[in-house]
Simulated assay, not measured.
Amino acid sequence: MGISQFLLTSFLLDVLVLYVVNGQPLVPALFIFGDSVVDVGNNNHLSTIVKANFPPYGRDFINHRPTGRFCNGKLASDFTAENLGFTTYPPAYLTKKAKGNNLLIGANFASGSSGYYETTAKLYDAIPLSQQLQYFKEYQKKLVGIAGKSNASSIISGSIYLVSAGSSDFAQNYYINPLLYKVYTPDEFSDILIQSYVKFIQDLYGLGARKIGVTTLPPIGCLPAAITLFGSDSNECVTKFNKDAVSFNNKLNATSQGLQNRLSGLKIVVLDIYQPLYNIVTDPADNGFFEARKACCGTGLLETSILCNAKSVGTCANASEYVFWDGFHPSEATNKILADDLLTSGISLVF
């Protein structure tokens, strides 16, 4: 993060602090949809192998316990909730915490290995976005019972909706699935994802969402697992994968602008994850990191989910020195930087 960016972020945080009066958050609630980057425990309640409810996941989180977050600590969405003035996080919808007054601050419907492409979630027994929307409908009925119809309507229209998807569609499906990569070019596959994205946003809008922040794809080619599997014995980011991500992100930007122009009252912001993470990976020392190629967990070359466990040999002692926690997911320290970038780019969703 440059000096000007740092000063702007500090200023915005100061402004937000001034607005957060008497412990009141800046928006009524926060709703989160998507994949493992924002899953806070929904996959714990599924029959999937894609879980993070065991050590060393969560070792730097509250009480040093795993929650289902694919990280050593907080996610970027956790920091975002804090930046918005929330003192607790929206509960994972499938957990026991998702009831009563806990639902007044929103809910998290995300599921590790989900994506815009319906089949990606089905491959891993995750919750597809279509089902996440069904849970949101169910949530709305519960909210009316808790807050009353008028208050529920105000909460739904005034809240922020975060969407994070697409990475699993490429990294955990397209690139390793000959049924896809032999049939579709990356450009054609991204078009399919964009069509699903449009339908998802339209459906979310139809359910009352008006302030939506959607994250871009990260530099997929810089994920440790991607370099290990597809880097041809190089320690450099896989250029082709990053080009695919940039191409998708360009389509996401154009499509989102079109949706905002078409849907009355919709405010949609594309939150760039690509450039901030790419900057960190390519210049780790300048961003306070020691290691960008290897992740903290195990060998740091491939491990994620069940491969990253308490017996993983070589797991680092200090995750804050590492850009990545496991082969696919950023460390808490990286998530903090990404969340501050989200704050500056998504401020228009608040005011």
Rank of each mutant, 00 (worst) to 15 (best):
S153F: 00
F189Q: 03
P219M: 02
Q140E: 11
P330D: 11
E236R: 14
L123E: 07
T239V: 14
G2Y: 07
T67N: 03
F200W: 01
S331M: 04
A165R: 00
S190I: 00
K199W: 09
L349C: 04
V38K: 04
V144R: 12
T255C: 09
S111L: 07
G68D: 00
I160A: 03
P128C: 03
K142D: 09
L207I: 07
A226H: 05
L343T: 05
A319I: 00
A209I: 01
S320L: 09
S77D: 12
V17F: 11
P25Y: 10
Q132P: 10
R262Q: 14
Y89F: 15
L7P: 00
K97I: 05
V281C: 10
N43E: 10
F290W: 08
T344W: 04
F136L: 05
H329N: 05
S331T: 04
Y181M: 08
L123S: 12
K96N: 09
S164Y: 05
S4I: 14
G106N: 05
S234A: 12
S36P: 06
G231D: 01
Q195A: 13
A310T: 12
N44L: 06
K122C: 04
T334S: 13
L252V: 09
A319F: 08
N335R: 03
G34C: 13
I160D: 01
S154M: 14
F6K: 15
Q172H: 14
N261I: 00
N279Y: 03
A107E: 00
Q260Y: 03
C222K: 06
Y135F: 14
H329F: 14
D169C: 09
F328Y: 15
G258N: 14
L26C: 06
D78N: 10
F289T: 02
A310H: 11
D191T: 06
A76W: 14
L342C: 09
E321A: 13
V37I: 14
V281M: 04
F351G: 15
P276M: 01
E118M: 07
R293W: 11
L12E: 07
N318W: 02
I280E: 02
E291P: 10
G112Q: 08
A107V: 04
R65C: 12
D169W: 06
I127T: 11
A310S: 15
T304Y: 15
I227G: 05
V163R: 02
L133H: 07
N335W: 06
T215A: 02
V183N: 13
N22A: 10
F79N: 00
D125P: 00
D35S: 11
L277K: 03
N235P: 05
V198P: 00
D125L: 15
F86T: 08
A245V: 04
A52R: 04
Y124S: 02
T299R: 00
S47K: 15
G327P: 01
F170N: 00
L204F: 05
N309V: 01
V269E: 12
R59T: 04
A98K: 04
I3K: 14
N83C: 10
T88I: 12
Q134T: 13
Y205K: 09
H45Y: 15
R65Q: 15
L271E: 01
K137R: 15
D169M: 07
L26Q: 07
S264I: 08
L75R: 06
G85C: 09
L103H: 01
S190L: 02
G206K: 10
